[in-house]
Design a protein around this nucleic acid. Structure first.
Lengths: 210, 210
DNA sequence: TTACTTTTGTGATATTATTCACAATATATA
DNA sequence: TATATATTGTGAATAATATCACAAAAGTAA
């Protein structure tokens, strides 16, 4: 089974499109429709599915419900995923209260910071001292953490998370963090995303000018 | 000149690493060092540079200042980039006040919403009615917009932005938005990023178990 | 039932991206 | 100055990814 990051990203996107199509009343779907929704080719869709032995019916397409279930299984979404956030700044608290995760079975169970003014031990999603992270992570069997601290603190935070048993980090600090064999780190760099967009907009404007 | 999105993303990352290395006192840099900082190979770095005719000195490496300047020119960062945000929810207001953009020459000049309770005409970064977006965009020659509205509203917002003259959209709504020849849309899907991470963490845990 | 049409599933092929490998050359050293 | 060494720059080779194209199967219509 040959997979790669892009392929898994597409699976997520297929799923999200499937929920939407389902809510519009569709029961079955063709690779063509999914391809449209996610802006890929229909052979890409079928190839992705074949990698994971997802099969439909020739001429009958795929049953949406089955498809969603299979994709969820592949993505490991059978059980609720508990996630912690480190860094309760603007972005951190926005993500903390972001409602989009719950429908995907992802729950932010706690946040951590070093600023005592931000501690909220009694809240539904508590904000706790960073020093308590290792114990919390072990007790609650947390695997995933989101980093939303400033770039200068990010590597230090990783050094605390790894021995605590965190296996996956989604890093929003604008610095490329290094994972290891025991921990996967994915970086989401907002500045880079915007710069990228700016580049292609400039290309667009220049080519139009011709 | 053959470019692609990944290559441009790497340029941004090189630049960010260069700022860091500069602040540590470095003046010259080798492809090796940059490769380390961004987690790519040194030939990747040199290849990327050669695509844009960036050259260093054999045995002398690259001068950091020149490199930063050249990359900024390529990325179109010669002048301040004015950006608007549509959707002043949790994520929107976090991005609105996110300080990381300014050092990259990106300025959020206004935000828009449909909820009158959110309007702040007098603020430094005003929150204005969505209806005023087209006029504002034209008057201020805005090219870039960030979408942080719910998925259900995102496509409608795009339909307002395109005729107003927006050329690039960074979309945070969890739905794949479609651009056209006149407008580039890049999607950042937080749910997808997290799901992706969860997948690879599960793979990690399974393989370790063996 | 039979012929026709549509859609899947997948090897073969094409395209794109990355790494290799090494000549060219700038700098350092003796 | 001559020699040794490190590093770039880039074609060639390799690897990764996506598309093509078509046989096989399943539905539809007559």
């Amino acid at each position: 089974m040959k997979t790669n990051k892009l392929c898994i990203m597409r699976l997520s996107k297929y799923k999200s499109a499937l929920y939407r199509l389902k809510s519009l009343g569709f029961v079955r779907i063709f690779s063509d429709n999914l391809a449209d929704a996610v802006e890929v080719t229909s052979s890409q869709v079928r190839k992705d599915f074949s990698i994971f032995d997802i099969s439909g019916n020739k001429r009958g397409g795929y049953k949406i419900d089955e498809l969603i279930e299979k994709i969820n299984t592949i993505l490991g979404k059978d059980e609720l995923q508990k996630v912690v956030i480190i860094g309760v700044g603007k972005l951190g608290s926005a993500l903390m209260h972001y409602t989009g995760f719950e429908k995907e079975g992802i729950k932010i169970v706690a946040a951590f910071d070093i600023d005592a003014l931000k501690f909220k031990h009694k809240d539904k999603t508590p904000v706790l001292p960073l020093a308590e992270l290792p114990e919390f992570v072990r007790k609650n069997n947390i695997k995933i953490g989101i980093i939303t601290v400033p770039a200068t603190a990010a590597q230090q935070v990783v050094e605390i998370m790894l021995p605590a048993g965190i296996k996956g980090v989604l890093n929003f600090a604008p610095i490329q963090l290094r994972g290891n064999d025991d921990c996967q780190i994915n970086n989401v760099n907002l500045e880079v995303e915007l710069e990228n967009l700016i580049y292609f907009v400039n290309v667009l404007i220049k080519t139009k000018g011709k």
